[in-house]
Amino acid sequence: MLSTLTDEGRKTLKVRPERLREVNKELEEMGARVTAQYAVLGGYDFVNVIEAPSNEVMARIAVELGARGTIKVTTLPAIGIDQYVEMMGANPPRKTD
């Protein structure tokens, strides 16, 4: 999940930096787990690597976080590169009559 702070989000973070951790706890309560999180310089403010049981759970999280008006989020489903290479090498499943 790539996220960008809104103006309101920046103000909140300046006053209450501990909000960063509180959000992680809330994500856990919604069924996801933050495995890595970085503040970054560039086109985004944060890069979050999140494990979620399904795309649906992640969609719910994205709406929940976006609705607060403090961040804009972009969620990208991710596959480990090794797993991806393995999957790409496999043949497509054959149709059976």
């Binding site: 790539l2 890595a36 970085y38 890069v47 690597v49 972009t74 969620t75 990208l76 489903p77 991710a78 596959i79 480990g80 590169i81 991806y84």
Partner: peptide, 16 residues
């Protein structure tokens, strides 16, 4: 390399 992912969406790959 700490982690690497293939992404679905506006970006295709992510390397940490």
């Amino acid at each position: 390399i700490i982690a690497s992912y293939r992404l679905l969406g506006e970006w295709d790959q992510c390397y940490i």
